[in-house]
Write a protein that binds this DNA or RNA. Structure first.
Lengths: 216, 216
DNA sequence: TTGGAATATTAACAGTGTTAAGTAAATTTG
DNA sequence: CAAATTTACTTAACACTGTTAATATTCCAA
């Protein structure tokens, strides 16, 4: 079935063309300016062709949200090499902030926009990507507790709290709520990183891991 | 100038009519379904009349965002009566979460939607509402440090971290990212409150203030 | 009573997501 | 190989959207 195979491949190619064009528009012109017609213009097809590859606009955004998770995972490969779970936790926080600030559009789709979750519900699926990410966080938090590096509490609750803090930072930042409280021209990311330093430093029990108490 | 006065009053009345109708649509049908034409239908004016009272749609959302801050402030009157700043901090967190979960549409406009900040930039103004709120938080955090209730660090940094955590919780919750990690049918707010308990409990130095270590 | 300002409306422009119907090319079938 | 059928794509249209220009109506002051 060489023909069916080739056709399959071509179909995937056009799909990718559409996704790439959508993201290009999203990154360069913002969510509101991603229209089916402009996507179609970019890939030089008619607008209705897009509907042969995606059921509707939300399905495009759902797929981009998945690409975002892949990208984030790639950004976190180095984590596995870190033996000390507390240091790993610290690095996880730093990576999360950096990914969000460097890829605000992907971050938006992954954790802020409603469209992907709407699609998920429509499909009756779980949020596998988010699930996996939180599971990794929980594992590291649990390991910290087991090794006596941080105080023992409910690991699920603590993981949710940690996630909320870093998400809160990125969400406020990329929706223009943080810059207003910063000295003129100051970089946002370094200051957000201090928050991670502070959190991990506060969690840490022993004096083994050193995180300087920072000041803005 | 009795007539001018009455006209002024009438003008304000129609403005309020528009804002109320907008919010009604926003609450009942979601952000995307608030259109100028539907607002006009609701108040039984023609669509273009709306433009005599607001420059554009974003200006309506900006005004609603301000109404939200008023509402939030009202919800926080009881705070002034709490002498112990650590207890006050705890209550601030609880109030913030409750306000966000009970008024997700207002919260969205205040801390997530881009429109209000865009308008602010256009007007060249500061974000007075957000500024005032963070200032109140900072004052309480500082008071806690002065009275030796929590460890001394940079109060600005700690305030930002605290805010980020509660914002993160609400933002994830109202954008449907948290329910997926909850036992079926579990209430979100009580669990989010545990996070505040944990945070304040972790910050607290003395044994004077009792917050039970919770488990989900 | 007339003139002008304030208020409201109609009509229109350029854009949106999406669907139904029609066309042309590629592939399978007889 | 030719006919039939499937696949890929397009044109035209519907019902919306925010917003502006031009027009009509109402109201108050001179």
């Amino acid at each position: 079935m060489g023909i069916a195979e080739r056709k399959e491949k071509q179909k995937l190619e056009v799909r990718k063309l559409i996704l790439d064009a959508s993201m290009k528009l999203f990154v360069e012109e913002g969510f509101d300016n991603v229209s089916i017609r402009r996507i179609a213009d970019l890939i030089e097809y008619s607008p209705t062709t897009v509907y042969l590859y995606f059921k509707d606009k939300d399905e495009i955004f759902f797929n981009l949200h998945e690409v975002g998770f892949l990208k984030m995972l790639e950004n976190s490969k180095e984590l596995d090499a870190i033996e000390n779970p507390l240091q790993r936790l610290h690095k996880m926080g730093e990576n999360y902030l950096r990914f969000g600030m460097e890829n605000p559009e992907y971050y938006d789709l992954m954790f802020i926009q409603r469209a992907p979750m709407k699609k998920l519900k429509e499909m009756g699926c779980d949020w596998e990507n988010g699930d996996a990410a939180l599971t990794r966080l929980k594992a590291t938090v649990s390991e910290c507790m087991e090794k006596g590096l941080i105080a023992k509490t409910d690991p699920d609750l603590l993981s949710m709290s940690i996630w909320s803090m870093v998400h809160g930072l990125v969400a406020l930042a990329i929706r223009d709520r943080l810059d207003k409280f910063l000295p003129d021209g100051a970089q946002l990311l370094p200051i957000m990183n201090y928050s991670v330093d502070w959190l991990v430093g506060t969690l840490a029990l022993g004096a083994g891991t050193v995180f300087p108490k920072p000041t803005i």
